[in-house]
Computed example of a mutant assay.
Amino acid sequence: MHTIWKGSISFGLVNIPIKLHAATEDRDIKLRTLHKECHSPIKYEKTCPVCDVEVKNEDIVKAYEYTKGKFVVLEDEDLEALRKENEDKAVEIIDFVKINEIDPIYFQRSYFMSPNEGGGKAYSLLRKALEESQKVGIAKIIIRAKEQLAVVRVYNNTLVMETIHFPDEVRNAVDVPNVPEEDKVTEKELDTAIMLIDQLTTEFEPEKYKDDYRTALLELIEAKRTGKELVTPTEKEPVSNVTDLMAALQASIDRTKPEKKKETATAAKKKKTAAKPKAKEKKQA
C-alpha cells in the first residue's frame, strides 16, 4: 500500500512514528474530451488574457485576491518555509472525545495508519487504550500544505486517521432556505411514517450497495469498444404521482409488504427445513 505521509503522532509523552496510507479510492470513471472532427484529445493551455501569450509554469506565481482585482503575491520560498515549519512538528493528539459527539457532516477522508520503524509497541498501546476507553483522539496534521483537523480511531484492528472540517468550514444550517420551523404533521401521518421506516429497517451491509451508474457506464463503454449490441435495461416501475402525504405513506407501506412477506416466508421455510433432520434422528433413535 502506497505511503503518502511519514511522521509521528503523540499523546502526552508517548511518541509513535507512523506512515499514512489512503484508506479509500475514487472509483469514478474519467472521461476525456476529444475534438469531434478527428477525436484528438483537447489541450488546455494556460494563457494570459492581457498579454495574449501562453504562460509557462516557471512564469506563474500564486496570489490571494483580497478584494476584486487586487492581489497579494506569495513567493514559493515563503510558502515552502511556512509548510516546512509546520510539517516538522509531530502530530499531537490534543483531546480525546466520544465519537458520537462528532456529527458526520464534519468527516472528510480516511487514512490507514501503520507504525514506522520502532513504533509497533506504542502503536499497539494507543490502539488498545482507544478500544478500552471507547474514545477517539482529536489531532492536527499538515497534509499537502494544508493543516487538517483529524480524528484518530480504531477500525478493524488498525488505527485510522480521518480528516474532519474545521467548524468555520461547515456552513450554518440556519442559512438553508425554505426549511419549515415547526412540524405541521398529524399523529396518524407520523405513526404511518414510523411504520414505513420500521418495515424498511435492516442491518447495514455495505457489500449490498453498488454503484449502478458506474456499472452501466462500463458496460456501455465495453459494448461500444467491441461493437456488441447494446442491451436496454428493464425500466423501473414509474413512481406514481401521489400528492396526498398520507396516501403516499400508505402506498409506500403496501409496496414494501410483499418483500417483507417473502423474506418472512423464506426464513420460515429455512427454519422448517432445518428442523426436519432432527425429527428424523429422533424417530431413528
Rank of each mutant, 00 (worst) to 15 (best):
L200H: 05
L200K: 14
L200Y: 00
L200E: 06
L200G: 05
T201V: 06
T202Q: 10
E203P: 02
F204C: 12
F204E: 13
F204H: 07
E205W: 03
E205Y: 11
P206V: 00
P206S: 02
P206K: 01
E207G: 05
E207K: 04
E207R: 03
K208P: 00
K208M: 09
K208H: 03
K208A: 07
Y209H: 09
Y209I: 07
Y209N: 07
Y209T: 05
Y209G: 05
K210W: 02
K210Y: 07
D211A: 04
D211Y: 00
D211G: 06
D212C: 01
Y213F: 15
Y213C: 06
Y213A: 11
Y213V: 01
T215M: 08
T215R: 07
T215V: 09
T215S: 10
A216K: 10
A216I: 00
L217C: 04
L217S: 06
L217F: 13
L218M: 15
L218P: 03
L220F: 09
L220S: 11
L220Q: 12
I221N: 05
I221R: 03
E222F: 10
E222M: 11
E222D: 14
E222P: 00
A223Y: 04
A223C: 13
A223M: 11
K224T: 09
K224N: 12
R225E: 15
T226F: 08
T226H: 10
G227R: 00
K228I: 05
E229F: 07
E229C: 01
E229A: 12
L230E: 11
V231F: 01
T232F: 09
P233V: 10
P233W: 02
P233T: 08
P233R: 01
P233S: 08
T234P: 02
K236A: 12
E237N: 09
E237T: 15
E237G: 01
P238E: 11
P238K: 09
P238F: 08
V239D: 08
V239G: 05
V239H: 02
S240L: 15
S240C: 00
N241L: 10
N241W: 07
V242K: 04
T243V: 14
T243M: 06
D244M: 09
D244C: 11
D244T: 11
L245H: 04
L245A: 06
L245P: 14
L245Q: 07
M246T: 08
M246R: 02
M246K: 07
M246F: 12
A247E: 15
A247T: 15
A247F: 02
A248Q: 02
A248P: 04
L249F: 03
Q250C: 03
Q250N: 08
Q250H: 10
Q250W: 08
A251Y: 12
A251V: 04
A251F: 04
A251G: 12
A251M: 10
S252R: 01
S252E: 08
I253T: 07
D254M: 09
D254T: 15
R255P: 01
R255G: 11
R255I: 02
T256V: 15
T256F: 14
T256S: 05
